[in-house]
Nucleic acid binder design. Structure first.
Lengths: 216, 216
DNA sequence: TAGATTGTTAATCGATTAACAATC
DNA sequence: TAGATTGTTAATCGATTAACAATC
C-alpha cells in the first residue's frame, strides 16, 4: 500500500496551507520552493520532498501554482470536506471554541455544546444550544457528528473519550491536560496548552540565563 | 558552554512532569525508567537519556525518587519561579485564558487583560480588569510583566508582538494563526490551534480511507 | 552479595539537506 | 534554445534505541 507519511511531514502541511492562503490573498499566483523556503525559514529541498509525498504538484522551470497547490493541500488535509462538530464541556474553553467563527469558514460546522451542569442547559453560545450530557448519547444517534472537541476536566476526559468513541464519533480534539489514547479507529489530537506554556517558561528561563552569562 | 538541548527533549519535559504529578498523587514515591516507559509509551533509554541532559537524578538499582524528579523537572522548566502575566486581546480566547484558574496554581500570575474596544474597558474577567490597549505601554513601565498571552486577530499580531518586545516583555504565548518570530531575546511559543485541528482532520480522513480499503 | 537499574557508549534508524539529472 | 526549477537520489546529520559496564 501507499507509503506511510511521517508525522513531521503532516505537521508541516498546515503551515504550508497558511502560507499559501496568505500569498494568494496578496495576489501571487505562482511560487517556487526557493521563495517558500526563504519566506518560511525552511529548506527548499524539504518543501519539495514534503509535497512529493502526495504527488507532483509543480512544474519544472516554473514552480507551483499557488491556487492549485493550496487546493491540493486542502484536499490532503481533508479541508474540502464538511464536518459536523460538537463541543463537550461548556466551560470557558468550550464556550470560546463554540464561539469562534473561524471554524465555520473552514470545513468545521459547530452543532451543539454539552455540559453536565443543568444550570447551563438551554443557554445559547453563539446561537447554539447548551444541552445536557445525559442527552449526548441520544443526540449522537440522531445526528451524524464527526468531531468532538473535548473541554472537560482531566479527571473525566479519558472516560468521556471512550464514551464518545463508543457512540461513533470519528475524531476527538482533546483540550484536557492528559493523553487520550487512540481507541479503535478514532482520530485524536491532544492540544496540551499547558505543555506549550511550560515550554515557553523554559525558553524564557534559558534566555534569562544566557543574558546573565553574557553580562559577566 | 553547556550542551544545546534539542527541541525534541524539551517538548517531552512537560509530559514527564504531568506524569510525575499524577503518580505522586497516587502515592508512589519511586519510579524506574522502565515503569515510566510502559505507562507513557516511550522508550526507557530515551527517558534516561533525556533526564541525563540535565543531571543524574536517579540512583542505580533503585530508580528515581518521584518527588525529587518532579522538583528537578519543575526547576528545569522554570516552574519554581513566579511570572506576572497579561493577556492582550479580550476576545473569547483571551477571556478564557484569563479565566482559567489552573495557571495561578502554577507559576503564572494573571494581572490584567487589554483590549482596543473601549466598550469592554472596565469590565472584570475573573476579577481582573479589562484595560485599554492605549494604556498598555504605560502599564508595562509601571509593572514588571514577564509574559504576554497574545490573543488578537492575526492582522495585528506581528506588530503587537514587536510592540510588546520593545516594552520589555520577556515571553509571548501567541494564539494568533501566524508565526511570530523571536525578536531580540524574547521567547515565543506559537500555539496554532487551527494547525492542530487540520492535523486532526487529516487523521480522520486517513482513518476513513483505511476503512474503505479494508471493506473491499 | 545478588539483583536491579542507572548513566553512557555504540548501533540503528529516520529525517533533513545537498546535488543533479529531467524537463518545462 | 537557454534558464529555471522541479522531482528524486545520494550524503549528511541528528534522534532514537540497544547494549552493557558502573554502582547502588
Amino acid at each position: 500500500m501507499s507509503e506511510q507519511i511521517s508525522q513531521a511531514v503532516i505537521k508541516r502541511l498546515p503551515r504550508y496551507y497558511r502560507y499559501l492562503k496568505e500569498i494568494e490573498k496578496r495576489g501571487e499566483d505562482r511560487v517556487s520552493s526557493f521563495k517558500m523556503s526563504e519566506d518560511m525559514g525552511l529548506n527548499a529541498s524539504q518543501i519539495r520532498r514534503d509535497l512529493n509525498c502526495f504527488g507532483g504538484f509543480g512544474q519544472q522551470g516554473y514552480g507551483y501554482s499557488v491556487e492549485k497547490l493550496k487546493k491540493e493541500i486542502a484536499h490532503i488535509l481533508g479541508l474540502d470536506k464538511r464536518y459536523n462538530v460538537i463541543v463537550v464541556g461548556a466551560g470557558r474553553i468550550g464556550q470560546a471554541l463554540m464561539g469562534y467563527d473561524g471554524f465555520e469558514k473552514e470545513a468545521f460546522h459547530m452543532q451543539a455544546i454539552f455540559d453536565n451542569d443543568g444550570g447551563k442547559v438551554g443557554m445559547l453560545v453563539n446561537g447554539k444550544p447548551i444541552m445536557h450530557t445525559n442527552d449526548l448519547s441520544a443526540y449522537l444517534k440522531e445526528n451524524k457528528i464527526d468531531i468532538a472537541m473535548l473541554c472537560i476536566p482531566k479527571e473525566n476526559a479519558k472516560q468521556a473519550a471512550k464514551f464518545l468513541a463508543d457512540c461513533g464519533i470519528k475524531a476527538i480534539w482533546n483540550f484536557a491536560p492528559i493523553d487520550v489514547g487512540e481507541q479503535n479507529g478514532v482520530a485524536v489530537e491532544n492540544v496540551h496548552l499547558s505543555d506549550s506554556l511550560y515550554v515557553l517558561s523554559y525558553k524564557l528561563d534559558a534566555n534569562q540565563k544566557r543574558n546573565e552569562n553574557n553580562d559577566i
